Computed example of a mutant assay.
Amino acid sequence: MSGWNTKKRFWKDVSVSEQDAGFGVLLDGRSLKTPAKTAVIVPNAKIAEAIAAEWDAQGDQIDPLSMPVMRWANAALDKVALQHAEVADMLADYGGTDLLCYRAVSPEALVARQAEAWDPLLDWAAERYNARLVPVRGVMFQAQDAGALERLRQEVHAFSNFELAAFHDLVSLSGSLILGFAAVEDLKPVTELWNCSRLDELWQEEQWGRDEEAHALAETKKSAFVQARNHFDLCSD
């Protein structure tokens, strides 16, 4: 029973059940399933309890947008679990064109701000993963060291299905593999890392004023970025 094929609440009780492969969520004693009919069996009780809380909080009408943990579980079970290597490779490829490596040519004040915010992150990755990525000015592609990219790729492949589903959002929303790693390793507060990904846009706002529509979209993405970091944290026992 998934509950995704109806808009009305059809259950009364929500519970968590420990099973051989992990923890399941039950609606009126029946196993919860994803939209693809995969049984919702998650790695630990924290994730199961968070999903159960989202279902229990629903009113008469089901609102999938109010269930971010459930949507993350759906992605992990219906998508990542079926193509873990492909998803990992796709995310690792961000390292070859990482946002932090492509710097402005001018003005010098923006160039300096990028260096101040982004160089320490690249230095951290070089030390933490033995993977030095080199920044360049301009948008012309510059190949990074193949060995460094391979070491980062191995780190991505080591994530579990649920970790990788959360990591996917961290990397794709920020445009940076390094910011994704920094987020899951708590290198800086998650909102500070998000602002690093928007450094150019924030600079433009300072110069020309805020575009309210663009700002609203950025705030939505920021919320999703923070949620993804919280989801990754749920993976730890």
Results as ranks from 00 to 15, higher is better:
Arg113Gly: 07
Gln114Asn: 08
Glu116Arg: 10
Ala117Asn: 04
Trp118Cys: 08
Trp118Glu: 01
Asp119Leu: 14
Asp119Gly: 07
Asp119Ala: 11
Pro120Ala: 11
Pro120Trp: 02
Leu121Pro: 00
Leu122Thr: 02
Trp124Cys: 02
Trp124Gln: 03
Trp124Asn: 04
Ala125Asp: 00
Arg128Ile: 05
Arg128Glu: 10
Arg128Lys: 14
Tyr129Glu: 04
Tyr129Asn: 00
Ala131Tyr: 00
Ala131Gln: 01
Arg132Cys: 09
Leu133Tyr: 02
Val134Asn: 07
Pro135Gln: 06
Val136Ile: 12
Arg137Asn: 10
Arg137Thr: 12
Arg137Glu: 14
Val139Ala: 13
Met140Ile: 12
Gln144Asn: 05
Asp145Gln: 06
Asp145Thr: 04
Asp145Ile: 05
Ala146Arg: 11
Ala146Val: 09
Ala146Ile: 10
Ala146Trp: 05
Ala148Pro: 01
Ala148Lys: 04
Leu149Val: 02
Leu149Ala: 05
Leu152Pro: 00
Leu152Thr: 00
Leu152Tyr: 00
Gln154Gly: 09
Gln154Val: 04
Glu155Val: 00
Glu155Gly: 00
Val156Leu: 01
His157Thr: 08
His157Trp: 06
Ala158Trp: 01
Ser160Ile: 03
Ser160Pro: 03
Asn161Trp: 04
Phe162Ser: 02
Glu163Phe: 04
Glu163Trp: 02
Leu164His: 00
Leu164Trp: 00
Ala165Lys: 02
Ala165Phe: 03
Ala166Pro: 01
Phe167Asp: 00
His168Ile: 04
Asp169Trp: 10
Asp169Val: 04
Asp169Gln: 10
Leu170Phe: 07
Leu170Tyr: 02
Val171Glu: 04
Val171Gly: 02
Val171Ile: 10
Ser172Leu: 12
Gly175Thr: 08
Ser176Thr: 07
Ser176Gly: 06
Leu177Met: 09
Leu177Gln: 01
Leu179Ala: 08
Leu179Arg: 05
Leu179Ser: 07
Leu179Glu: 06
Leu179His: 05
Gly180Phe: 03
Gly180His: 02
Phe181Ile: 10
Phe181Val: 06
Phe181Gly: 01
Val184Thr: 11
Val184Asn: 03
Asp186Leu: 11
Asp186Trp: 12
Pro189Arg: 13
Val190Leu: 11
Glu192Gly: 09
Glu192His: 14
Leu193Ala: 08
Leu193Arg: 04
Asn195Pro: 03
Asn195Lys: 13
Cys196Met: 13
Leu199Tyr: 11
Glu201Met: 14
Leu202Gly: 11
Trp203Met: 14
Trp203Leu: 12
Gln204Ile: 15
Glu206His: 12
Glu206Ile: 13
Arg210Pro: 08
Asp211Ile: 06
Glu213Gly: 11
Ala214His: 14
Ala214Cys: 12
Ala216Ile: 12
Ala216Gly: 10
Leu217Gly: 15
Leu217Phe: 15
Glu219Gly: 12
Thr220Tyr: 14
Lys221Val: 08
Lys222Ile: 05
Lys222Trp: 09
Phe225Arg: 02
Phe225Met: 10
Val226Arg: 09
Gln227His: 15
Arg229Ile: 05
Asn230Thr: 13
Asn230Arg: 15
His231Arg: 15
Phe232Tyr: 09
Phe232Asp: 01
